[in-house]
Simulated scan of single mutants.
Amino acid sequence: MLTGKQRAYLKSLANGIKPITQIGKEGVTDAFLKQLDDALRARELVKVHVLENSGLDVKETANEVARLVRGEFVQAIGSKFTIYKKNREKQIIQFPK
């Protein structure tokens, strides 16, 4: 579980990244989850774009995706959301003390 300070730090990092994957009309698929999990393992912080034709609520989808990949929901703004998952083998993001 992230603290408020950690979440704020992740939001500031997410501000500068672009979405690397998207959810379309097929919704959240196994292939999408696998791709997202691989990206989280490599980067720890990933932004996802939910296309309008998906018909999904962004915040609900973000929370469900975070649960499925065992990550943490960071934020949802407009049609984009950000997920964080700590890499236990090689931690990339160092939180300030």
Rank of each mutant, 00 (worst) to 15 (best):
M1K: 12
M1H: 12
M1G: 15
M1N: 12
T3R: 02
T3P: 04
G4Y: 09
K5W: 02
R7K: 15
A8C: 02
A8H: 06
A8W: 00
A8P: 00
A8T: 08
L10T: 11
S12F: 02
S12Y: 12
S12H: 13
L13E: 01
A14R: 05
A14T: 07
N15V: 00
I17T: 06
P19S: 11
T21C: 11
I23Q: 01
I23T: 03
I23A: 06
K25I: 04
V28E: 09
V28W: 10
T29D: 01
T29K: 10
K34D: 04
Q35P: 03
L36C: 02
D38G: 00
D38L: 12
E44R: 01
K47D: 09
L51M: 15
L51D: 09
E52L: 14
E52A: 15
G55N: 08
L56F: 05
D57E: 13
T61F: 05
A62C: 12
E64N: 11
L68K: 14
L68N: 09
L68Q: 15
V69Q: 10
V69E: 08
G71E: 04
E72V: 01
V74F: 02
A76R: 11
S79C: 02
K80P: 00
I83N: 01
K85C: 04
K85D: 13
K86G: 00
I92R: 15
I93N: 01
I93S: 03
F95S: 02
P96F: 00
P96I: 04
K97V: 14
K97G: 13
K97P: 14
